[in-house]
Design a binder for these strands. Structure first.
Lengths: 187, 187
DNA sequence: GTCGACTCTGACGTTGACGTCAAGGCTCGG
DNA sequence: CCGAGCCTTGACGTCAACGTCAGAGTCGAC
């Protein structure tokens, strides 16, 4: 997906040598939907929102999807399921990534000055780090959640172990303590 | 929230000594909504789905919420935002946790046999570990995502560093390589 | 008891992300 | 060139998770 900048710039001819879009013969929307594990409606809807433009369309107006398009769909679903982003937010992320691909292209273009390259790279970095912030926050929260859960599980395990040797007098008893209200923080 | 098993069993009187529900004077739905950061409608809706039963209701039918209830709302929102569960799934998780609280109560009850206690603890463990599986899967996926992102960021950083000393001949160039298609797995 | 603030129960509206259906257009093998 | 499939664009339906509104009821202070 980074190789095409999502049908953006890159006016230099398709460089008929490597197989960037050969071999894979472009899929109709039905086959693409099956391969991507989504509905045809979803593909049209993504296009309607500007998330996904099919690799090309026939003169008659039929959509034709490339492997890159399928990867893009996979990314959309990943961002949906993993980060819980809605399609508008995903559009932003994808546009950022498209911009990165563009930047990569300009970067390797001889006509680009070194100063411009540094600027582009910094822009790229900032975009990525912004997303990273979101993701990292989520991971931290998830880790806290998991730690909480693990603490409870350990308590259960300890109890069970205690009952394996039925005469060991070790028992904390008293309050249920931190088993029910071990919320780490709560901003 | 574990101290009440969400208005379940525990017939023994409220034990008028500790302040489990004293001090905090129970909130009307308006105040509770503000404190919990949700709408009144959401609170009623959660109740309608069986997710949250207010600590008590006035004889006239007005809902009164305790601090435990607020914690429960926080948990609901956490499960929504963090794990992306829908309210039905959250209901399952909460019912599990309520069951755990019940188990804790029986566990500390003298009339409970040791065999029963072990059974209860094992049930508890199984419930927790099931949830843990879900969460862990999510964390793994998120870590993969983050690693992917970090790899890209590192690439940017390396590029920038390369331009700090403008004459160092180190450059990988060639293909963008793993920058665009480093999907870990895809079950 | 009475007034104002708060709350109740329906019931219908909304938003996001599609599902579904109808009426026609495109493609490609024979 | 032609028919079987595949595809197109509307347009309306749906589901979750609430938002919103109306009309009536409740509570606490005075």
């Amino acid at each position: 997906m980074a190789t095409t900048a999502h049908r953006g710039a890159a006016g230099t001819a398709p460089a008929a040598g490597s197989p960037p879009t050969a071999g894979a013969p472009l899929l109709g929307i039905g086959a693409a939907a099956v391969r991507a594990g989504v509905s045809e409606r979803a593909l049209r809807y993504y296009q309607q929102l500007g998330l996904l433009v099919p690799a090309c369309t026939t003169p008659g107006g039929l959509r034709r999807y490339s492997e890159d398009d399928l990867a893009r769909v996979a990314r959309i679903r990943e961002l949906q399921a993993l980060l819980g982003l809605n399609l508008d937010e995903i559009a932003v992320v994808l546009r950022n990534e498209d911009r990165l691909a563009e930047i990569r292209l300009s970067y390797h273009d001889e006509r680009t000055s070194d100063g411009e390259r540094r600027r582009l790279t910094r822009e790229c970095l900032s975009l990525q780090e912004s997303l990273r912030g979101t993701v990292e926050a989520k991971r931290v929260a998830l880790d806290g959640f998991l730690a909480d859960l693990d603490a409870r599980i350990r308590k259960c395990r300890d109890l069970l172990a205690g009952y394996r040797e039925p005469e060991t007098p070790r028992q904390d008893k008293g309050e249920p303590a931190s088993l029910g209200s071990a919320r780490p923080q709560h901003g």
